[in-house]
Nucleic acid binder design. Structure first.
Length: 817
RNA sequence: GCAGGAGUAGCGAAGUGGUCAAACGCGUGAGACUCAAAAUCUCAUGGCUCAGUGCCUUCAGAGGUUCGAAUCCUCUCUCCUGCACCA
């Protein structure tokens, strides 16, 4: 197959000449294009990879041709669970699995024609990479950003390990369908990302990201203003967070989360049995399916303790309940059944009194007859001195009152949690600390702390089986020490990799600040919508932390972000082996060539939309490229007319804008239109070259080949992107072209009615004759009729039926014979 | 429940106030080429009508704003995606 031959030839040339390797060049404007580095799975590239990396490559090639110094690197997010699971299943070592996967990936990536600077390749499972993960960790430890605390985790008693949320399926372990996942409280490492919560929200404003992506992040961080109110319980002070201080007089009970670490302090002897029974019942509180959560009934048990309402001294019973989150706010709520639906349902079930403190204008609110909480606005009642205030005013007044009496304060709360990074897993970055009986937690001195190779996979944390590795000396006192066996969340590896690309071989420092500040931030980042809430928050957090260390001169990692759509199977479902709808990119390359696949992927639809795979589109692209190839192989240059120049320049202008905004589907249509036009009307060398340059970003191989066929010795990859000469865009000419098309369409229309004819006579208005005078050839081609063109006032004209009187401006009259 | 997105001709998909019966691709039909087929090329493809440039009905549904709406507003329905009882 000719395309494959061509592709292999150019792939080799690019590689030999290393043409895509770049260096810092202060004289040249830089542009950093980045695709999220892939997880190298054993299955090789999937269609999503083929799509998203093609988008990156198209953009990198585009910017390169526009004269920018383009950094377009690639690497592998190689640490992670799948490698470890493959190890458990297939008995291979994660290291070998990863090595093979990367090899396979590279082969396929090169075949796709992606113009990476391979010299900067990184592999996060390489100790030379994760060494710097550890370095950052120790810096965070030093600055108090990394810390340790007890946290509830998902625990499978059969695996004897902590599970990630993704590994909890319907409350059961993913590998043990019969085993309920338990919540255990273990000491875990955290990053204090909440220190940056405000900056993470405010920084969004200046970013050129899609609005919905920004919104999603804002909601995820979830800043809310509220009041913390001190309740006295058993002589101790318990601050409680609320956004509704206006309802404080309506509090009739309190609910503490069943997962709260201090729950037992509140449980009295008499109630212990009941609470235990309740806790046992709700032991599995992990991720549930949507339905389960919706149907989940609010349940709880009385703890036996009472709180004192600081406003009126009332004694309030404290319950524990399954609907209160342990890690949001205070983990305990003041329950106002009159004005909060959840509290109402709970009160209803346990027959706790309802007290109305906001009067509704419409509804008659009497506790005995209420069937749901009143959550609207209104004037306060039953609220002591605050009666009569609107509840909005009361929020403010009550907060001020509490502050004056030192019973409360205004606080800001975030949904964003501190980032739990401990994983009881092998294939991750070892957390570089040592536990010493004398000195406590001591940072490792020698980095990297390498993963020991000899471990047992299967049960529990494999690292815990590496006895010799765990036993070590305390770097501080020289006494006995134990290594940390937890590894870091792999999201840590991907939170700063973009910086390492700027200086990936540096073995002295994490990177050379000069180089990094030349290339960064990323000018165009490209990835899936699923990364907006996790990865993109973490990478922003790391950037800000490293800036605070004085390493970076910028605050945000990526100025522009593009979210690509997902390519589904032809059945509209996600591509997956079990559904049997997987299309392998490599199969497509073998069948049609990489250029065809690349072109097809951006032709389905707007690249930010989800699409369904359709091989017909691939065949359409294939057909088109064959036509292009044939045309250029036998091209005879001709002098372009003004119409061609106009069309070309208009398309250059519009297409450049389309590419800049990732409207590749529309750009491709314009390329096709231009091609059709050139095929009909001819082109000179310059125009033909401009066409190839525009096609090049989509089909790099074919265009290199044809560029050579036109007699060029250079790489088209480094040619200048065409710039539109707006003076040559002639709207009138293009309108005339359209008028001729309409005329032909009219002729065909009549022809359809009257059957076949041999000749067409056309009568134009005198001033329009010149528009049509050259169109006889085209008319012959499209209608198979010989045309004679007259002006209506032409005395010599042949017009037996006097049709010429029907001619109108822009609409010549027709007579068929 | 909250947040985001979508619903356009046989299908995929552009189009966000007039130039819209609506780009482009696919499919389908007709024709050319050919002994024939494939490939390629040409035309047609909402309905009706006609030696034409006219009429009618359309852009999930119902209302509304406007001289004028696929496009703006309101409500409703359906589908997708993310989050999960956030006090």
């Amino acid at each position: 197959m000719k395309f494959r031959e061509i592709e292999k030839k150019w792939q080799k040339k690019w590689e030999e000449k290393k043409i895509f390797e770049v260096k810092e060049n202060p004289k040249k404007k830089k542009f950093y294009v980045l695709d999220m580095f892939p997880y190298p799975s054993g299955a090789g590239l999937h269609m999503g990879h083929a799509f998203v990396f093609s988008l990156g490559d198209i953009f990198a090639r585009f910017k390169r041709m526009q004269g920018f110094n383009v950094l377009y690197p690639i690497g592998y997010d190689a640490l992670g669970l799948p490698a470890e699971n493959a190890a458990i299943k297939a008995g291979t070592h994660p290291k070998d699995y990863t090595k093979n996967s990367i090899k396979n990936f590279m082969r396929q990536q090169k075949a796709m024609g992606w113009s990476y600077d391979w010299s900067r390749m990184i592999n996060s499972s390489d100790p030379e990479y994760y060494k710097w993960d550890q370095w950052i960790f120790l810096k965070m430890l030093e600055k108090g950003i990394a810390y340790r605390k007890k946290a509830p985790v998902n625990w499978c008693s059969k695996c004897e390990t902590v599970l990630a949320n993704e590994q909890v399926v319907n409350g059961k372990c993913w590998r043990h369908e019969d085993t309920d996942v338990e919540i255990r409280h273990l000491e875990q490492w955290f990053f204090r990302i909440t220190d940056y919560a405000d900056e993470l929200i405010n920084g969004l404003d200046k970013l050129g990201w899609p609005e919905n992506a920004k919104k999603l992040q804002r909601n995820w961080i979830g800043k809310s203003h509220g009041t913390e109110i001190d309740f006295e319980i058993n002589g101790k002070n318990w601050p409680i967070f609320t956004t509704r201080p206006d309802t404080i007089f309506g509090v009739t009970f309190m609910v503490i989360s069943a997962q709260h670490s201090r729950l037992m302090e509140l449980v009295t002897k008499e109630q212990k049995k009941e609470v235990d029974k309740f806790l046992k019942k709700i032991k599995t509180v992990s991720k549930k399916s949507m339905k389960e959560v919706e149907e989940l009934e609010k349940e709880g048990a009385f703890t036996g303790s009472y709180a004192v309402n600081p406003m009126n001294g009332n004694k309030i019973p404290i319950y524990t309940g399954n609907f209160v989150l342990a890690d949001y706010g205070s983990g305990m709520i003041m329950a106002v059944p009159g004005h909060d639906q959840r509290d109402f349902e709970f009160a209803d079930k346990y027959e706790i009194p309802v007290k109305v403190v906001i009067q509704s204008k419409e509804a008659d609110l009497s506790p005995e007859r209420m069937t749901e909480a009143y959550t609207g606005t209104g004037k306060l009642v039953n609220s002591g001195n605050f009666d009569g205030l609107s509840n909005e005013e009361a929020k403010e007044h009550i907060s001020i009152y509490l502050k004056e009496k030192k019973l409360g304060r205004k606080v800001v709360n975030y949904k964003l949690r501190d980032w739990l990074i401990s994983r009881q897993r092998y294939w991750g970055t070892p957390i570089p600390v040592i536990y010493c009986d004398k000195c406590g937690i001591v940072p490792e001195k020698e980095l990297p702390v390498k993963l020991p190779e000899k471990v047992k996979f299967g049960k529990g944390n494999p690292l815990a089986t590496a006895e010799n590795w765990i036993k070590t000396k305390c770097p501080r006192c020289g006494g006995k020490g134990r290594r940390e066996t937890d590894t870091m969340d792999t999201f840590a590896n991907s939170s700063w990799y973009y910086l390492r690309y700027t200086d990936s071989k540096n073995d002295k420092k994490i990177f050379d600040v000069k180089k990094t500040n030349y290339w960064c931030p990323i000018d165009q980042y490209i990835g899936g919508p699923e990364h907006i809430t996790m990865h993109l928050i973490y990478i922003r957090f790391y950037t800000k932390f490293l800036r605070d260390l004085g390493l970076l001169k910028f605050d945000e990692p990526a100025l522009r972000y593009f979210t690509q759509g997902i390519v589904h199977g032809s059945d509209g479902e996600k591509m997956s082996k079990s559904k049997g709808n997987v299309i392998e990119p490599f199969d497509m390359i073998n069948k049609y060539g990489a250029d065809t696949l690349r072109l097809a992927l951006v032709s389905f639809a707007s690249p930010d939309k989800d699409t369904n795979w359709d091989e017909k589109i691939v065949m359409g692209s294939y057909k088109f490229l064959n036509k292009v190839f044939d045309f250029f192989s036998e091209i005879k240059f001709s002098k372009p007319d003004r119409k061609t120049e106009s069309k070309l320049n208009r398309i250059i202008k519009e297409l450049t804008d389309d590419v800049e905004d990732f409207r590749h589907n529309l750009a491709v249509i314009k390329i096709r239109q231009l091609f059709d036009f050139l095929a009909d009307n001819g082109a000179d060398k310059k125009i033909a070259e401009s066409f190839l340059k525009m096609l090049h970003i989509y089909c790099p191989y074919l265009t290199e080949e044809l560029w050579g066929k036109l007699g060029n010795k250079t790489f088209i990859s480094f040619e200048k992107w065409p710039v539109a000469d707006e003076k040559k865009i002639d709207k009138k000419l293009e309108e005339q072209e359209k008028a001729v098309e309409n005329l032909i369409s009219d002729i065909n229309n009549v022809l359809k009615i009257v059957g076949s004819k041999n000749k067409v006579f056309i009568y134009t208005l005198p001033n329009e004759k010149q528009f049509y005078s050259g169109s006889a050839i085209l008319i012959k081609k499209k209608t198979n009729l010989d045309a004679e063109i007259y002006a209506v006032n032409d005395k010599e004209k042949y017009d037996p039926e006097n049709k010429s009187k029907k001619a109108k401006p822009g609409k010549p009259a027709i007579f068929l014979k």
